[in-house]
């Protein structure tokens, strides 16, 4: 079933400079990575989905509702967007209040909102920071507070704008956990990513934006095997893919385990 339908959408911030040039996409529940050069229109695209911007042409449907006619607030229970810059999102004086704000605003009672906020904070590993001022946290933690704030609203559609910025190994694991949880619940997760390794490992579909158009849309193995296209779009193949090809493999490997298995398999026939 289509969760998000995008029909021939155009958008420009200033006249004569089209940022999106006729995007048509259909999203079911498959987790989707959006990749592309800086300025390709990725963030603009997700702001349109979230209703923060309205298309200059074309239509967007979120769970069957026309987003063109709805405010961002009316869309909030269904679709959540974690901003790229956490300082654009954070405004309360404690982490717990920050994370409770969303659920309270979509009609949750205080007790329920608190429970959801606490669960979301646990998921991202910030339970101990609940009473701190979010502005005092480091960038990576602020980003996780923003993720938790949206997770606590339990939207059907979750969009993460560059979630892996500033994250260390533990932070990456927390983001991975959030994505997995949404997938298990059959919910749609979209992520804008510059980390190709992370995109290859964690998403079922990859959409490539280039200068306001979609130039590829397929499963990760297919997209990451198209090197010249990625090159043109300002991207690179994942490190593990590159290593596999450099070793003469024809396949497109997406994870360490896949390549190691291949290297072991051939190694053993030699012996």
């Amino acid at each position: 079933m289509s969760r998000v339908v995008v029909k021939d959408v155009c958008f420009s911030y200033r006249s004569g400079e089209e940022v999106l040039k006729g995007i048509t996409l259909d999203f079911d529940e498959k987790s989707t990575a959006i990749i592309g050069q800086n300025g390709a229109g990725k963030t603009t695209f997700v702001k349109l989905l979230k209703g923060l911007l309205k298309p200059t042409r074309g239509e967007i449907y979120i769970l069957g509702r026309s987003a063109n006619e709805m405010t961002a607030a009316a869309l909030a229970p269904f679709i959540g967007l974690v901003f790229q810059n956490p300082n654009d999102q954070i405004f309360r004086s404690t982490v717990l209040e920050e994370v409770m704000f969303g659920p309270l605003n979509i009609g949750e009672d205080p007790k329920g909102a608190r429970k959801k906020a606490e669960e979301a904070l646990e998921m991202v590993g910030l339970t101990e920071k609940a009473s701190e001022n979010p502005h005092d946290l480091r960038l990576s933690e602020k980003k996780l507070v923003c993720v938790a704030s949206i997770v606590a609203m339990e939207p059907e559609i979750l969009i993460l704008d560059e979630p892996t910025i500033a994250q260390d190994h533990a932070g990456m694991a927390a983001i991975r956990q959030v994505i997995r949880r949404f997938k298990e619940q059959g919910k749609l997760v979209m992520g804008i990513l510059h980390d190709m390794d992370f995109a290859a490992e964690n998403f079922e579909r990859v959409v490539v934006f280039h200068q306001g158009t979609v130039v590829a849309d397929d499963d990760p193995r297919e997209v990451f095997s198209r090197e010249s296209l990625l090159q043109r779009a300002g991207l690179e193949v994942p490190h593990i893919t590159r290593l596999g090809w450099s070793l003469g493999r024809k396949e497109t490997f997406l994870t360490e385990a896949e390549l190691i298995q291949s290297l072991r398999g051939e190694g053993s026939t030699d012996r």
């Binding site: 390709a40 790229q84 560059e162 510059h194």
Partner: peptide, 13 residues
């Protein structure tokens, strides 16, 4: 301090 975290892969390179 993490100078290219928000750059696309080629831009970062």
């Amino acid at each position: 301090d993490e100078p290219t975290s928000q750059l696309d892969p080629q831009g970062s390179e």
